[in-house]
Design a protein around this nucleic acid. Structure first.
Lengths: 133, 133
DNA sequence: ATACAGTGTTAGACGTAGTCTAAAGCCATG
DNA sequence: CATGGCTTTAGACTACGTCTAACACTGTAT
């Protein structure tokens, strides 16, 4: 078992079972924005007998305990983002890949003053093509 | 048959069948952001024998012909937005309602200069609570 | 050691959203 | 009124996610 992940789980009030650690080892480290079934597939490579329900339960538990954030911006699916700090998202229309965009890379104004709305959080969602830079 | 809708469909190269006009009468006028099944339910009230597949086919046709825009920001579902001009979106966390926010109500800077990304379109997605104003 | 309680895991059933398919219907044209 | 092309239909199918009920594991009290 990975000690670092065990510590993170315990620090957030989660019993570190073998299955939860296996899910955490993958999903808390990845730079991707995997869907639940992608997490299931990745974890099964090292833990072949883990069940679908356990992976879904564990992901929902991690979201509840704020180890992951749920994003709803890819094609009709929920994906998970271990990057908890505020940031924006860029979706590559060619591959469907979701990239993080640093919070300070774009600036947004006047969100706080919208009439009739208490904005608790916001982000810019961009779509386009990746290119060489 | 609603003449205005018939004209819109014909002007966009769509044969105005009775079913397509019925879908158009609802979805091209609404201020809501209905899901496909909500459109199906609404249209069936006046056209009870219309099939699910026809509604889905028609919505996809409208999107392809640019009469509707597809949004992927509600809870795991695709919704349709007849407001084609650029605008932002506010999601009321209490009710799940999606509200349009005028393009000029917020300002966004430096999107064009992101290294490695050709941004073709973008929008600000806000979440929070509605309040009296 | 043994029983028990509480937590976690499992397979599979289920619900919902959306797509696909094959057959049938409609309608303009010759 | 036969033909061909487009449209619609019901239902099968797929994918994603949740739920359920049984089972397994762990730790504590006896």
């Amino acid at each position: 078992m990975n000690e670092a992940v065990v510590t993170i789980l315990q620090g957030n009030g989660i019993q570190p079972s073998a299955q939860r650690v296996a899910v955490g080892e993958y999903v808390l480290r990845t730079e991707d924005h995997p869907s639940a079934d992608q997490v299931w597939a990745a974890v099964r490579e090292r833990f072949p007998m883990i069940s679908r329900a356990t992976v879904y339960n564990t992901l929902n538990l991690f979201v509840e305990k704020k180890l992951l954030r749920e994003l709803i911006l890819a094609e009709g699916r929920i994906v998970f983002d271990p990057n908890l700090g505020p940031h924006h998202h860029f979706i590559d229309e060619e591959s469907g890949a979701i990239l993080d965009v640093p919070w300070d890379a774009v600036s947004v104004d006047r969100v706080e003053t919208l009439p009739g709305m208490d904005v608790r959080e916001y982000q810019v969602v961009m779509r386009g093509r990746r290119r060489a830079h």
